[in-house]
Amino acid sequence: MEDFQTPLQPIILLDLAILSLLIATAFAMMRVRRLFAVVMLSGIFSFLAALFFVSLDAVDVAFTEAAVGAGISTVLMLTGMLLTARREKPAVPGHKNIAMVICLVTGAALFYATIDMPAFGDPNAPANIHIGQEFVERTPQDIEIPNIVTAVLASYRGFDTLGEVLVVFAAGVGVMLLLGAGSLRGGRKVKDDRPGDDETEHDGREF
């Protein structure tokens, strides 16, 4: 098994630009205290991640990231933000050194682990030789649809996808039960005090 080298192409510059923008967005999200800006930055982060997935040829994943990560979850975070404070509390000083050490050690370990990872696009990578190759070879005979992702998702792994749909369903039922099953049947409507209106009532909802 000879070593596979990813061919060096100009697109690597685009990848590097997207990745550095991702890191810059993540740092900006850490520094900014206005939650509105944080939500917008997380939407930008999702769009950048979607761009990166496109450059990795994972169009289906990019599609989902753009629709769910940048679209729906940004709006959900905004509506969630309306129920809490608009501004993050300033960070409490202290315990910073130990957290820094943990982050640096974990980061270094992850960097070290990337050395062992197969090159991008390596046909001999473990993910590509066993079941992955089988799917690519058998889909034209077994399923006869052009999109192998859909064939795997809906046919070969149909039972897993049923489980995924049930997870989504359970999430919806959970939100309905927690945030107002009573109001659906015309029961007691849940009322929230607008944060900041009443300073004497602190029940920790700012977080």
Binding site: V75, T79, L82, L83, V165, V168, G172, L179, D192
Partner: peptide, 21 residues
């Protein structure tokens, strides 16, 4: 089936979050 379930679940979650304000 997936499409119907996902669309209605997302809208349910959104309605319940947004309907409180």
């Amino acid at each position: 089936g997936v499409g119907i379930a996902v669309a209605s679940t997302m809208l349910t979650i959104f309605y319940h979050f947004a309907g409180r304000e």
